[in-house]
Deep mutational scan, measured.
Amino acid sequence: MQRVNMIMAESPGLITICLLGYLLSAECTVFLDHENANKILNRPKRYNSGKLEEFVQGNLERECMEEKCSFEEAREVFENTERTTEFWKQYVDGDQCESNPCLNGGSCKDDINSYECWCPFGFEGKNCELDVTCNIKNGRCEQFCKNSADNKVVCSCTEGYRLAENQKSCEPAVPFPCGRVSVSQTSKLTRAETVFPDVDYVNSTEAETILDNITQSTQSFNDFTRVVGGEDAKPGQFPWQVVLNGKVDAFCGGSIVNEKWIVTAAHCVETGVKITVVAGEHNIEETEHTEQKRNVIRIIPHHNYNAAINKYNHDIALLELDEPLVLNSYVTPICIADKEYTNIFLKFGSGYVSGWGRVFHKGRSALVLQYLRVPLVDRATCLRSTKFTIYNNMFCAGFHEGGRDSCQGDSGGPHVTEVEGTSFLTGIISWGEECAMKGKYGIYTKVSRYVNWIKEKTKLT
């Protein structure tokens, strides 16, 4: 034993070699072989497995989906700052455009905790909710729209109204504003409101030439003092309507412009014939205590009207009353817009006519005020429907199939267009061939041609 100890002390290297040989010859039971080890760690190889990531292109799944990435790591994937920024906006807080917040056709661009709407022409605001041009839906104005110097929408209202708090709607500024039905039992019968379409306001006024200088022999019209197929109006439903009495009662109609003036057809009036105007009328054979009678003290036909040349060209006249009318729910003026808007309103496509005229061709006159909704007829169809001249200051309205029309005794009465609950004068009943005849239409004086003249002559002093 002493000898062994001496050998170990003198030859430590020998001992180490012996131990190493023993270990190498022993069977290893701690580690699995290569094949079995792979069965336990069965993990798919990654895209760049075996390579240094710093030297390969980034992978979106590896960089940002398996674990949260930084902007720089995302930049490695896209290799483009702009594309990385677009991805980053949604990656950080989701897609803010998912709810489609942009209105009126706006395009949404996502941002971090926010979004941006790219608005089409005519709109602005956070969600493109603000109209900035009158060309689109009248700028959301209830009545009139004008573009300011910086191309912003400025709404306005006709006389007797003021802008509401929203700067879009119009509200009454006087007790009985024009064009409004205020009798409670008839307010439910107000005709369907007309909503502004998209309009090209630059070209809204037709490029028409008034044929002022045409000389033409007097034409022989049949029954051209021209509501057939209409309905009984309720008291106060058309408070701007008046009836004219002269040699015979209810020979023509008219509309209240203001307390002192009536507008009617020029062919209705004769110099030297006494005319009485009755406002607030409903049943011409009954006294309903809503009527107001006034005498006409002055007749002003349009300066281009000449019955000797043509009885229905420039067929418009103004009547001055001896005493002002007292405005109330049964006696209310009709609204008159400017030339541009009167023309736009007419193009809405349908209007209402009213009167006490004959209820059928050569038949009896109506006792109760009649009204009828009539569609506008395109000019080409209008011209083809008659052998008589249709001037540019006239328009056609009615039904091709016949059966409904204005008729004798309705002449001078109103053709009105309702705009968001307020009625505007767009025409004056003038003439036609018979009444409600198939293929024939009622012919009306186009008020847009005469609004400046009306307003100039009827100013209240």
Rank of each mutant, 00 (worst) to 15 (best):
Cys18Leu: 14
Ser187Pro: 11
Gly432Ala: 13
Leu32Lys: 12
Pro301Asn: 10
Ile316Gly: 01
Asp249Ser: 02
Ile299Lys: 03
Tyr371Cys: 07
Val374Tyr: 03
Gly253Arg: 09
Glu434Asp: 14
Cys435Gly: 05
Lys109Val: 11
Cys155Phe: 00
Ile40Leu: 11
Cys178Lys: 02
Phe71Met: 14
Val195Glu: 13
Val56Gly: 15
Arg379Phe: 11
Ile336Gly: 00
Val56Ile: 08
Asp338Ser: 10
His267Thr: 04
Arg298Val: 01
Ala207Gly: 09
Gly94Val: 09
Asn38Phe: 06
Thr215Ser: 09
Ile316Val: 10
Asn59Arg: 09
Cys407Tyr: 05
Gly427Asn: 00
Glu86Met: 15
Met6Trp: 14
Thr29Cys: 11
Ala307Leu: 07
Val269Cys: 07
Phe196Gln: 09
Lys455Ile: 07
Val419Leu: 07
Val181Cys: 06
Ile15His: 04
Lys387Asn: 15
Arg364Pro: 09
Val368Ile: 15
Ala317Cys: 06
Cys335Tyr: 02
Val326Pro: 01
Ala337Ser: 03
Ser423Cys: 05
Glu73Phe: 04
Ala149Thr: 12
Val56Met: 07
Gly439Lys: 10
Pro239Ala: 03
Gly246Met: 03
Tyr312Glu: 03
Ile40Cys: 05
Asn213Trp: 04
Gly254Trp: 00
Cys108Trp: 00
Phe221Pro: 13
Lys459Cys: 14
Lys339Val: 07
Val377Thr: 06
Asp405Met: 13
Glu171Leu: 12
Ala317Trp: 00
Cys155Lys: 00
Val202Ala: 09
Glu165Pro: 14
Ser148Ala: 11
Pro172Gln: 08
Asn304Tyr: 12
Glu72Tyr: 07
Leu460Gly: 07
Cys69Ala: 04
Cys435Asn: 04
Thr342Asn: 03
Lys126Ile: 11
Lys39Ser: 12
Ser255Gly: 04
Thr276Tyr: 05
Ile7Gln: 14
Cys141Met: 00
Ile256Met: 03
Asn80Ile: 04
Val359Gln: 13
Met394Ile: 11
Asp150Asn: 12
Leu318Lys: 00
Lys455Ala: 07
Val4Gly: 11
Ile275Asp: 01
Glu27Met: 04
Phe224Pro: 12
Gly355Leu: 07
Arg140Gln: 15
Asp200Gln: 07
Asp315Leu: 01
Ser11Asn: 09
Asn100Glu: 08
Ala173Met: 12
Leu130Lys: 12
Ala37Cys: 05
Leu20His: 02
Val326Ile: 10
Arg46Trp: 08
Lys260Met: 06
Asn213Val: 10
His289Gly: 13
Arg62Lys: 08
Phe395Asn: 02
Ser354Ile: 13
Ala307His: 09
Tyr312Ser: 04
Pro44Asn: 08
Pro324Glu: 06
Val92Asn: 07
Ser156Ile: 04
Glu420Arg: 15
Phe345Trp: 06
Ser217Phe: 10
Glu433Gln: 14
Asn38Gly: 15
Glu53Gly: 11
Tyr161Ser: 01
Pro333Arg: 03
Glu66Lys: 06
Val374Met: 10
Val4Thr: 12
Ser182Ile: 08
Tyr391Lys: 14
Pro177Ser: 05
Glu323Phe: 08
Ile275Cys: 03
Val195Met: 13
Leu211Lys: 08
Cys69Val: 03
Asn203Ile: 07
Lys109Asn: 08
Asn135Leu: 12
Gly229Asn: 06
Glu98Leu: 14
Cys69Asp: 04
Leu19His: 02
Glu82Lys: 15
Cys155Met: 00
Thr290Gly: 06
Ser70Gln: 15
Asn306Tyr: 05
Asn127Glu: 05
Tyr91Gly: 15
Ile300Val: 11
Glu401Gln: 15
Ala397Gly: 07
Leu244Tyr: 01
Gly442Cys: 14
Ile443His: 05
Gln90Ala: 11
Gln241Phe: 14
Met6Tyr: 12
Ile316Tyr: 01
Thr158Gly: 04
Tyr161Gly: 00
Ala250Ser: 10
Gly413Asn: 07
Ser329His: 12
Asp198Asn: 10
Ala26Pro: 00
Ile17Gln: 01
Glu35Ile: 07
Val416Lys: 00
Val248Met: 07
Phe71Ala: 04
Ser448Met: 03
Arg83Ser: 13
Asn203His: 08
Asn36Tyr: 04
Gly254Ser: 01
Phe55Lys: 15
Glu320Arg: 01
Gly229His: 07
Gly413Cys: 10
Phe224Thr: 13
Thr84Glu: 06
Asn393Phe: 04
Phe176Leu: 07
Leu383Asn: 14
Pro44Gln: 07
Gly106Thr: 03
His267Ser: 10
Lys168Met: 11
Thr461Trp: 07
Gln408Gly: 14
Glu76Pro: 14
Gly409Tyr: 12
Gly13Val: 15
Phe345Asp: 01
Ile275His: 03
Cys97Gly: 02
Ala366Tyr: 11
Glu67Tyr: 08
Val368Trp: 04
Ser430Glu: 04
Asn5Arg: 08
Ser148His: 11
Gln216Phe: 08
Gln2Gly: 15
Asn393Val: 03
Leu321Val: 09
Thr264Met: 02
Lys457Cys: 09
His415Gln: 01
Arg46His: 04
His282Cys: 05
Asn100Gly: 04
Glu418Trp: 06
Leu367Lys: 15
Ser448Ile: 02
Asn59Cys: 06
Lys51Ile: 07
Asn452Pro: 14
Leu346Gln: 08
Cys18Lys: 01
Asp212Trp: 09
Glu193Met: 12
Lys311Gly: 05
Asn135Lys: 14
Ser25Leu: 14
Asn100Trp: 08
Phe360Asn: 14
Phe176Ser: 05
Gly230Pro: 10
Thr186Gly: 08
Tyr391Ile: 04
Lys68Pro: 06
Ile390Gln: 10
Glu320Ala: 02
His303Ile: 06
Glu340Phe: 14
Pro197Asn: 06
Ile297Met: 07
Phe348Gly: 14
Asp110Gln: 15
Thr342Cys: 03
Ala436Cys: 07
Ser107Gln: 10
Asn310Ser: 12
Lys446Ile: 00
Glu79Pro: 15
Gly179Asn: 02
Leu327Asn: 02
Ser329Thr: 07
Val359Gly: 14
Met394Leu: 09
Arg226Phe: 07
Val273Glu: 02
Thr186Arg: 10
Lys438Ile: 05
Cys28Asn: 02
Glu142Arg: 04
Met8Lys: 14
Ile15Asn: 02
Ile443Asp: 01
Val174Pro: 01
Arg384Ala: 15
Phe399Ile: 15
Thr458His: 01
Gly409Thr: 07
Ile284Thr: 12
Ile316Pro: 00
Cys155Pro: 00
Asn328Glu: 02
Gly58Cys: 07
Thr215Asp: 06
Leu376His: 05
Ala308Phe: 10
Tyr352Met: 04
Pro197Met: 11
Glu231Arg: 10
Ile112Ser: 15
Trp118Ala: 12
Ser182Lys: 06
Ser114His: 13
Ile40Lys: 06
Phe144Ser: 00
Thr29Ala: 06
His289Asn: 13
Lys68Gly: 09
Thr417Glu: 01
Arg3Lys: 08
Thr458Ala: 06
Ile214Ala: 08
Thr287Arg: 07
Gln167Leu: 12
Arg46Asp: 07
Ala307Ser: 11
Tyr91Asp: 07
Asn310Val: 03
His282Met: 07
Lys446Phe: 01
Arg449Asn: 15
Glu418Tyr: 11
Glu259Leu: 03
Lys293His: 11
Gln57Ser: 11
Gly355Asn: 08
Ile214Arg: 07
Val374Leu: 05
Ser156Gly: 07
Leu376Lys: 06
Asp95Arg: 14
Leu103Ile: 09
Glu86Ser: 15
Ile309Ala: 13
Glu124Gln: 12
Asn151Tyr: 08
His302Ile: 02
Ser406Phe: 11
Asn310Leu: 04
Val181Thr: 15
Tyr330Glu: 04
Thr85Cys: 04
Val56Asp: 05
Leu211Thr: 09
Thr194Ser: 12
Asp95Met: 08
Asn295His: 05
Gly427His: 01
Ala366Ser: 04
Lys168Asp: 03
Val263Cys: 02
His415Ala: 02
Glu323Met: 10
Asp338Tyr: 03
Leu103Gly: 13
Val183Glu: 07
Val263Gln: 00
Asn306Leu: 05
Phe144Lys: 01
Ala397Leu: 01
Arg140His: 07
Gly272Phe: 06
Asn48Asp: 15
Lys39Leu: 11
Gly58Asn: 12
Arg162Asn: 12
Glu434Lys: 13
Gly432Glu: 10
Ser148Gly: 07
Asp249His: 02
Trp118Thr: 11
Val263Trp: 00
Gly412Glu: 04
Asn38Gln: 15
Gly355Trp: 15
Pro324Asn: 05
Leu327Tyr: 05
Thr461Pro: 09
Cys178His: 00
Thr190Phe: 08
Cys178Trp: 00
Val195Leu: 12
Glu456Ser: 10
Glu79Thr: 14
Pro172Asp: 04
Gln237Arg: 07
Asn36Val: 08
